[in-house]
Design a binder for these strands. Structure first.
Lengths: 228, 228
DNA sequence: AGCGGGAATTGATGGCGATCAAGGCGCAAT
DNA sequence: ATTGCGCCTTGATCGCCATCAATTCCCGCT
C-alpha cells in the first residue's frame, strides 16, 4: 500500500509525532492502522471505550453532542492533518466524550493508545508537544465559551467568517465554508435559518457576498470593526 | 512563618506535586512565594505576561472575561486547594488568557513557571499528572460548551445545583452556594434576575427551598429527572 | 430533459431571557 | 436607632432567535 509511505511522511511532519525518532515512529505505525469511512458513518459513540486516538488523513469528521431533544452541537470539525480524541489518553477509564461521525468520505489513522503512552515515557519532547496541543485546545475552549456566553449569534457568525480568513488577511478576501451550511450552523450553535438570515443581512449591508459555499469578505478590517 | 510547613504538606497532597520527591518539592517551594489578596483585588489581567501559575491556599478567586459591553462571564471559580493558570505553562508567549480577581480574601502560592517546567523534565509521573489535569479540564469545557449551546437557563441552574451535591447524594440534600448570587449568575451566564426568578420557580414547585445562600434540594433524584 | 429529495431560503409567529425600573432586605458604620 | 449602600427580588416590557411552515434551489439519477 502506497499509503504507508505517505503516512510515515505525514507523521514526521505532525506536531505530536515529529519529536519521535524514526524507530519510534515505526513502532507506532506498526501498532496503528488506517481505516476508510464514508460520509455519515459513525466512527464512535460518546461513552464507547477508547483504545485509539486518531489522525485524519483526508476527508472531514465532526465531533458532536446531542441534546435530549435531539438537536446537535458540533464541538469540533476535523480536517485533514488534525488529530482528535487525544484527550482520552489520560483518562482512567478511557471513553470518548463525544460522538464522532464522517462528514465527507475519507481515511484516518487509528493510533494505538498504549503504544503512544509508552512512547511518551521515552520522549519528553513529545510530552511537551502533547501538553502544548492540549493548551491550545483549552485556549480554543475559553474562546468558544466566551462567545457562546457573551455574544449573540451575529457576532459568532462574523467571528467565524473572519476565522476562516488568514490571520494576515486585509481588504477584500475570499473564504470557503468548510462544510455544508447545516453543519456550520450546528457548529455555531444556531439554526440553519438564522445562519441563512444573518448571511443575507450581511450581504444586504455589502459586508460580504455569498455564492454557494464561497464567501467574499468585502473588507476584512471593516468586518472586524463591525463586530464591536 | 507557620505557613511554610502547611504549604509543604499541602503540596504533598496535591495532585500536581505529589509525584515529586521531597527534594524536588523543596526546590519548587524555594522558587515560589505566597501572596495575600483581598476581595476585589485584581490578581492579573488577560494578556499579562505569566511567570507563575497558582495554587489557592484559601479564599476564593474568579477567572473571567468581559464582553465589549462590559458584562462578565466567569470561566472558573477557584476554591482552596485548586491550581489555576497552568495552561500558561506551555504557551510560547505565556500570557494569562483571562482576568483573575479575588472574590473573598485569601492567600495563594505563586509557583514559578520555569522551576516547574524544569521539574517536569525530571518527573514523567508529574507530566502525567499535568496531562491528566488538563484532560479533566477539557472534559469540563466540553460539558460547559454543551450546556451553553444546547440547554436553557433553567437547565443550567438545576445542573449547577445538582453539581454542588455529592455525586452519591440521594433524597433530601442540603447544598450551599459557594459565592454571592451575582457571582453564581455570572458563572452560569445568566443575569441575577433570571437566577432569582428560576430559584423562585423551583421553590414554588417544591423542588428546592432557598434560605439565603443555603439551598435544600427536596429530592435529588426528582430534580435530576426534572431536567430531562 | 425530467424527476426526486435534501439543502437552503424566506416568511409569520411565539417564547425565553435580557433589560429597565422600583422596592425590600441585610448589614456595616456612624 | 438611623442612615446608606449593595445585593436580591419582583414586575413590565422588548428584542433576539427558535420554531413552524412554505417555497425555491441545487444536484444526482434515470
Amino acid at each position: 500500500m502506497q499509503i504507508d509511505g505517505v503516512l510515515a511522511r505525514e507523521l514526521r511532519r505532525h506536531y505530536l509525532f515529529c519529536a519521535l525518532s524514526d524507530e519510534q515512529r515505526e513502532r507506532l505505525l506498526a501498532a496503528s492502522r488506517t481505516r476508510r469511512f464514508v460520509a455519515g458513518e459513525v466512527l464512535f459513540r460518546r461513552g464507547d471505550a477508547a483504545r485509539h486516538f486518531f489522525l485524519l488523513h483526508n476527508g472531514c469528521v465532526k465531533l458532536y453532542r446531542l441534546s435530549p431533544e435531539g438537536s446537535e452541537k458540533i464541538m469540533r470539525l476535523i480536517r485533514a492533518g488534525q488529530t482528535f480524541a487525544e484527550s482520552t489518553l489520560f483518562m482512567e477509564v478511557p471513553t470518548f466524550p463525544v460522538h464522532g461521525e464522517g462528514v465527507e468520505d475519507g481515511e484516518l489513522v487509528e493510533v494505538d493508545r498504549d503504544a503512544f503512552l509508552g512512547l511518551l515515557r521515552e520522549s519528553f519532547a513529545t510530552c511537551q508537544a502533547v501538553m502544548a496541543q492540549m493548551t491550545a485546545r483549552i485556549q480554543g475552549h475559553w474562546d468558544e465559551i466566551e462567545t457562546l456566553a457573551l455574544q449573540n449569534s451575529r457576532y459568532r457568525i462574523v467571528h467565524y467568517l473572519l476565522g476562516l480568513a488568514p490571520a494576515t488577511a486585509q481588504g477584500r478576501t475570499a473564504v470557503t465554508l468548510p462544510a455544508r451550511k447545516m453543519v456550520i450552523a450546528a457548529h455555531l450553535a444556531v439554526t440553519p435559518e438564522t445562519l441563512s438570515r444573518t448571511l443575507r443581512a450581511l450581504s444586504d449591508e455589502h459586508l460580504i457576498e455569498v455564492t454557494g459555499e464561497d464567501v467574499m469578505i468585502a473588507d476584512v478590517e471593516a468586518l472586524r470593526r463591525h463586530m464591536h
